[in-house]
Design a protein around this nucleic acid. Sequence first.
DNA 1: CTTATTGCAAAAGTTTTGCACTATA
DNA 2: TATAGTGCAAAACTTTTGCAATAAG
Lengths: 156, 156
Amino acid sequence: MNNKLTEIRKQLQVDGYKLTPQREATLKILLENHEHLSAEDIYMLVKDKAPDIGIATVYRTLELLSELRIVHKLNFGDGVARYEITDNKEEHHHHHLVCLECGKLEEFEDDLLEDMEKKIQATKNFQIVDHRLSFFGYCQECKDRPRSDRPKAKIE
Amino acid sequence: MNNKLTEIRKQLQVDGYKLTPQREATLKILLENHEHLSAEDIYMLVKDKAPDIGIATVYRTLELLSELRIVHKLNFGDGVARYEITDNKEEHHHHHLVCLECGKLEEFEDDLLEDMEKKIQATKNFQIVDHRLSFFGYCQECKDRPRSDRPKAKIE
DNA sequence: CTTATTGCAAAAGTTTTGCACTATA
DNA sequence: TATAGTGCAAAACTTTTGCAATAAG
């Protein structure tokens, strides 16, 4: 856990970047919070520890870390980019079921994509870092509910 | 091809939406351009045919068509949402490879998800209508390019 | 010391919204 | 004619950038 921080610290040094307290604070937040955080989320969390940081610095740090492939920038299509430390192996098997009726989000685990990834890496010469899989449909409750009672969905 | 327009026209009517010239013009553009178009792109193209349309109407039409699942809203992470007509047949086996370095989008076909869908429908009691699958990683060129030559991010 | 990095505020860019007007069913 | 839909302009957001001040190596 702390190894990871040391490792990244070294990587930054090797690449000639300075180790500022702001960068370190941001990294710690990312290491402590493995969910997908928006820049705003990260800004708030970092602010607790380093109240003087500006959001521009957070964005610049995240961009740098993306370039170095230390974090992965994700997009769920809600107009906000989200970030997470790269390397989360478990995260890879975690997919979404989105109900088109009520918008509810379920999650499920499956490693079936491993095969497809291997196939792509071999066939397409494309190095995969992450993936996002969502299924859209109707959850149990909505499936069985009469149409008139249905809430208007807000798709993606 | 024109069938498709008639079909969608009917679908709108059935759902109680009005068939305005603006909506029709937007639909035609979407049917003629199967690439992933941004709202701005669509606005420009529609403007050629119906110069008085406003971009707000384009956004509202696209949102409506998304809800009706006539178009897919896609996000490649460059800050602009893109739209494409849903094609119920091939679309289902059509996935995306997004390069995190240069933003390039490749597509590939695979029907491996059929199995997963069956599994989910059985296990989760969730009725699947559609899915979206994107892989994020590095394309051949970016993978092999030395760091120093890399285009300054614009990462995903 | 030198130069990368920062914070602030302003700018940029996309998408949404309020409102009075218009046109479809 | 009733009401859904539209255009315009302003607002709301997220993200980027210019610049003078600061701090890391």
